[in-house]
Structures are given as C-alpha cells and as structure tokens.
Design a protein around this nucleic acid. Sequence first.
RNA 1: UGGGGAUUAGCCAAGCGGUAAGGCAACGGACUUUGACUCCGUCAUUCCUAGGUUCGAUCCCUAGAUCCCCAGCCA
Length: 550
Amino acid sequence: MDNPSASSHFIKNIVIDDLQSGKVDQIITRFPPEPNGYLHIGHAKSICLNFELADEFKGRTNLRFDDTNPLKEDNEYVEAIKEDVRWLGFEWDGLFFASDYFEEMYQRAVLLIKKGKAYIDDQSAEEMRLTRGTLTQPGQDSPHRNRSIEENLDLFARMRAGEFKDGDKILRAKIDMSSPNINLRDPALYRISHTTHHNTGDQWCIYPMYAYAHPLEDAIEGVTHSICTLEFEDQRPFYDWVVQECEMEHQPKQYEFARLNITNTVMSKRFLKQLVDEKIVDAWDDPRMPTISGLRRKGFTPEAIRSFVREVGVARSNSTVDERLLEHFIREDLKLKSLRTMAVLRPLKVVITNYPEGQTELLEAENNSENPELGNREIPFSREIYIEQDDFMENPPNKYFRLFPGNEVRLKNAYFIKCNDFVKDEQGNVIEIHCTYDIETKSGSGFSGRKVKGTIHWVEASQALPAEFRLYEPLILDEEKGDSDSFMEHINPNSLEVIQGFVEPNMSSTQAHDKLQFFRHGYFNVDPKLSEPSKPVFNRIVSLKSSFVV
RNA sequence: UGGGGAUUAGCCAAGCGGUAAGGCAACGGACUUUGACUCCGUCAUUCCUAGGUUCGAUCCCUAGAUCCCCAGCCA
C-alpha cells in the first residue's frame, strides 16, 4: 500500500501558485533521461515527482529521451528505461526523443546566427579551455568571435554537410566571456561528431549540446515546470537565454531540487556502469545494485519505492537518507501481502526420539496470521526435522530462549519439544540433537498447561525441498563514500552470501517474483533468473528487525 | 579567493512574525505460537553563530562560519 501522506514541498507550492495566479492553465512536466545507462532509485525520485505532480494537478507528463550524445547512448537503454518507468506504475502522456527535434534545433541555431547571437569557432577544445578564464579570472574573446553572419551561416551549413572533422569547428553562443557565471562564457551549442545515432542513424554529424537542447525540448513540448537537480542551477540563466533568443513561443521554467543519496549506496550512473563493466556485480539488475531493475530483482515493490521517495521529500539541501528508511517501507508493504512460511537456512537435524518411526502427519498452518484472506496450508511433520543452527546452543548465554540441553521450546505450528541430548562430529561441531515431544502441546489444541519462552521454526526432513538463499549486504562499506571517487576502495567483499538450506515442500510451486516471509528471517523474493521448481532460489529483500543480541 | 546554492534532533523533513508537524532510527514498557508485528511512553525550551528590528524572530535586517555546485566539444 502506498504511503498516503501527500506532503507539501516547495515545487508543489510553486505549482499551486502558478495555477491560482493563472500563469498556467495546466501543468506539463517531463522525465528526461539520457539513454546511456539503467535507471536507479535516484531517478525514481524524479519520476515520482514529475508524474505525481501532474497526476495531482490534472496535468501531463512526457517521457523524453535526452539523446543528444550518440557516443554514449544505446537503444538497449531506452527499452530498459521504458520498462522501469512502467513498472514503477507510471504511464507517460507523450513519448519523445530529443532527436525528434534535431531539425528544429538546427533552424533555431541558424536564427541565433542571423541575430548575431552565435558564431563558429575554430579553436580547439584545448584552446577554448585556456581562453575560458578561471573561477576568478575572466575569459578572453575568441579570435573568431566577430566573424560575419554570412560566414557563420556558411560555415554552419558546411558543418552540417560533413565538410569538417570532429573537433575542427564548433558553434558557440555569443554572450559574455567575462561573465562571473562560467556557463555564460560563450557556451558551446553544436559540436561535430561523425557518429551513428541510435535513432537518426547517419542523418546528422553535428549534435546539439545538452544546455542548448534541453530548454528547446521543453519549450517545444510546452513543458511548464522543468524539474532538474541542483547541479543545473547555474545553467538556469542560459536556459532562459536560449528560450528567449531562440524566440520560442512557450517559455518553460526550470526548478532544481536535491538529488537522492542513500547511505552505503553508490548512486551515479558512471559508478554503477563501472561496477558492471568491472564485473564487481553480475549485471545492471544484480540485486545488490540500487538500479530499478536490481531492486525489482531483489524483491522490492513499486509501492515501497514510491512510498519511500514520497517520505524522503523534495527540498534543496544535499542530504543522505538512511537506507533503513527504504527497508522500513518494503517491510510495511509486504507485511500483509506475503505468505509467511518456514525456511531453514543453516540446517541442523533434530530427531524426536519419542515420535513413532515411519509416521508422518499433516499440520495446519495460517499463511499470514494478520491477514486471514491468505488462507491456510498443510505442512508435514515427522520424527526428523531440521531447525536453524542458531536455535541450539550447548552453553547458552543468559536470556537465550531457544533450544539447549534440558530446555523446552515451541515448534511453530507443531509441538513443544525438549532437548535431551546432542551429537558432535570429530571437530566438535554439533551435528544432531535429540529431543522428545509432548503430544498434548499440539498447536491449536488450546493447551495451556505450561508456557515456553521461545518459538522456533523448522522443516520436516524427508520432504524438505532444497533451496538456495542469497543474502545481501551493502556493496559499499563506508556509508559516506557511496558518491565519492574512492568508492572502489570501499567495496564490501561480503556483499553476497549464497547458502543452501531447506524450505517447506509446497514451495516447489513458487513463481518468479513471488514474495514470502520466512519466519524469523525476513522477506524473500523468488529470483526470476536462477530459480527452478526443483531448486528454488530466494533473494533476501530485507531481514526482520530483531532486538535480540547475544 | 568569482558566481550560484544550502544549514531545523542520529538521518530525512514541515514551518512563510504568534511561541518547533510527521517519518525513520534509538531507548523504555505491554502483548506475542515470528526476540517480528501491534500498542503505550521517551526522544529540539530551541532552529549554524553573533548582533539588530519587534510586544513577540526558525521566519525580517546586518555581519560571520561551515558544507555543496560551476572552469566537457558530458548530461
């Protein structure tokens, strides 16, 4: 269930004001990813912001691919992004590509040249860097800054025609080389790149820069509120300049908010790509990745992600959200939805010495004690069962409520058992324990003769279904290093632990992405790629909270 | 040290001149056939600091501190 609290934030307040003042009749937002990687949970914040704002105020939201750099982009990414946005629960009104507008962008650039607001520069990238000045010193005008309009027009047409090599010429805005805002020191508008584009093929060999293209895209689509992250703040004057000087009839406005950071989490497409490329993880959808596809494969739900980003809020201060907030929302979402069954991750055999050999009985169990609609199931019980290794100690500490010699515990949905003896191997490890059960204490019988402090889970041994469990820890150990260049030095070597255990026999019918609670362990997801009916594979989404410390 | 931002509890975050919402976390306790869940309780006399204006300031003014972003033909 979604977190219902629709809290206010500064962008929503702006929208309300704009609607009330009549500045806009209907809001139009857009989610504008570059198809150069997979979406991560940081993008989810932006997606929810844009789509939910439009939903709330009866506006529209476009999905627009910002595909102005063919060197880095690929159709694989556009398909993955579409899938992720839909999976999160959103449907776009318009589906567009920046490349849809290349001709218009070119014509607007011609207009800029005709107005004397843009010129062709012959300087190399290096020369441009040198003449741009520094943070404290103004830049110097390019020697080509005052070329005639006719010459600029001619050169620009020849750039388009492919007469020049990459880097030989560039179209620049003519603004102010001494502006204290470096973004206004004659920023680049068009560069030459003889690269095949995933949409337009070889139709173009010049491509617009983001800072020039983006405001045009917004203006063409009638976007009213163009929402981006804080690092684009200094670009806003140029954004407005482009809209103004290109004489766009519609004038979108840019608003910036702080991007999402989460503790112990790498949140940058570049770093995530590095993790994939260097095989630190298996793929973009590795459950350890904070990508939408990784979270999906791990077992997170769209509802939990939406609730999470809503609760985080939208503000302008850089912040790092505690990963436990995300965990809170998946626990809350799955609490009533998922079946609660038993799984033994690290098995220890128990022989119930007074239970008849060869006998098996079926016991009734609720699938979710807090949600009767999920019904009941039957589970087998017999003389030999598996319990968790953690649930037995030869020499227990104080306040240990589980099994130890002489102690009695409840077997969830079954009987009380009492430990009488145990067997060790040559290394001194406990490999089997012997108990007796009390038939009077059967679950559901109403027995109240005596109380027991602990209840443990178990699986009947002969019918237990072998299963693989994949337990995850953060990929990054230092909680503040997730977004720094040194993050590779903080990779957690134990981010994945694969163990073999058992689940109840009926688990053979699980389907990919089924979500279950395993008693006392946590919530798990059936892995869509690795799981098989005879050997299910479960990804742990999140453990249960526990106040027990040894 | 140019320009642009930010600063409210351990982490997020409301608040818009009338006396500090909410969530997470944490800590007590109750309950419990999950050491879970649920429930009850605790958790900022103070909002980066110092002055000022005001009957009254987290909010307005002045000065300062700290942190983030900008010198791609990336987005």
